[in-house]
Amino acid sequence: MSTSDNAEVDTGFFARLVTLADSLVTGFDPVDLADNLVLSCLDFLPVVSAGIMLDDQRGHLRVLASSSEETRLLELFELQNNEGPCLEAFASGSGVLAPDLARESTRWPLFTAEAAGLSILGAYAIPMQLKDRTIGALNLFCDNLDGLTEAQVQLSRVMATMATLGILNHWTIRRQEVMAEQLQFALNSRVVIEQATGMIAERSGGSMATAFDRLRSAARASRRPLTDVATDVTRGRLKDL
């Protein structure tokens, strides 16, 4: 994990940035891109977990990608439909920086209690925006009180912007209908992945986190989009994961 915030950024970071940027123009799976982004956050920022939440147009924020599919972490992201940094970032359109959650127990009593149970001490939420419209937020959790530097917060904004462009992949979004189509497409892809993960966990008797890792490995080994491999699992075409 790189925690440097000076000009000496390692080349691995640039290589990853190039790969992510390439995927924006070569055609891709929005869930794949979001998955890559949250894993990149773990590699290049001093955070212990990362997630991308998206407006589902039904009055909720939904998880599009999470650095772990462990159920309690997913539910901590979702709990922010009631209160928490993600909801505030989404509602206000501004970044919410809470490096010390112990100070926020009055502001977010439910969220801070649940976060403490998962050893999460700090939280950040960066809104994902296109023009004047907020479509979701990037959520980052820290397991220490060191917090993110200003440069690292800037990097989080770059990640959030790339996620936005990855989900709204038409460069000419002229109408909100097109935005609605693409948000629904991304979220439905995510549902297919959740169902496939449940099927793999049931067959293997393992955890959701392990089941998702198997799914991701299978997708990478065959160089196919995550959503395609997940669809094969839900349709019974792939049973040996």
Partner: peptide
Amino acid sequence: GGHAVTHQAIG
């Protein structure tokens, strides 16, 4: 309301 755990359970 679209919980991840619901779809994991469906699977």
